[in-house]
Amino acid sequence: MPAPLASAQLPATPPASVARRRVVLLAGCLLLAALPAIAHGAGQPFLIATFTRFVIYAIAAVSLDLILGIGGLTSFGHAAWFGLGGYVVAIAAFHAQDASTLLGWGGSTEALVVWPLAIAVTALVALPIGALSLRTSGIHFIMITLAFAQMLFYLFVSVKFYGGDDGLAMQRRNTLAGADLRDATVFYYVCVACLVAWTTLCAAIRRSRFGMVLSGCRQSERRLLALGYPVYRYKLVAFVLAAAGAALSGALWANAARFVSPDMLAWVKSGELMVMVILGGTGTLFGPIAGAFVLLGVEQLLSAWTEHWMLILGPLLVLFVVFARRGLWGLVAGER
């Protein structure tokens, strides 16, 4: 039987830092809630769509942080789950639109049907892939997750029926009882609700016994094994959970863009998600949200300003790594 993990508690954070963290979190939540009002107030309502995009990517980044930051499993194929989730939603809508069937199912545009479906399908695909990938560790894990993601990428590129490389468009957003998702503000708040719910869930997981074991995997897998924990199973569950979170994010993105393409599964997208997590601060869960906002925001500002935006963004990232060692969250909340 595994020994109880009381001794493996995280080092106690000094109270001052806890207070600071709470303030920052509260301010972040308020800001998220106020963004649409700010956008309207500034006479720039289109910004709501931009912020929606940031929020959606933040969900994917948080889910990546669950395995990368907490479990120490660097997945370089996380975009595969993002894309898969999106494709499930778009394919369901595709069949509902032209009244064709997929394995006898007529498709659906009901959010409460297709979003959970996207999560379930993705989790189901992630299970065997995770089971195989987790036989490796370290850099090899990075590469094997990349390999599987590339296989899925090429799969969607080759499936002509669903648009292949050109992608698949959705005529309208999913329907959700009690909310008009076509309205930008409503959709924004739905996405924020998903982000808050998902981050809360992840934070709860981190504090749970399960999270402790996972965190232990990162610190010393050998010790956990010696203590009798079925480490492999813990990691596999975490892998599938993280995939599910990314699938939710992908499902939302399909709705936001009303368009999916293999581009969503590309390795570059996996890299971007990783950059968001590292930028925000690995293992902090809240950091990656900031990471997503800052990376996408800076990219958008710079690319609107000059076509040579990469000339600036590149060195900015380098400087950030060299001088800000603890990520954005470390800078604001004083916690790694």
Binding site: Q44, R53, E307
Partner: peptide, 22 residues
């Protein structure tokens, strides 16, 4: 008003929204 879509459909759409609305 010129903007680069970086050959990403999602970026293009984002820019379109901005141009149309802002």
């Amino acid at each position: 008003i010129v903007e680069d879509d970086n050959l990403k459909p999602a970026n293009g759409k984002q820019i379109a929204d901005k141009m149309l609305q802002q």
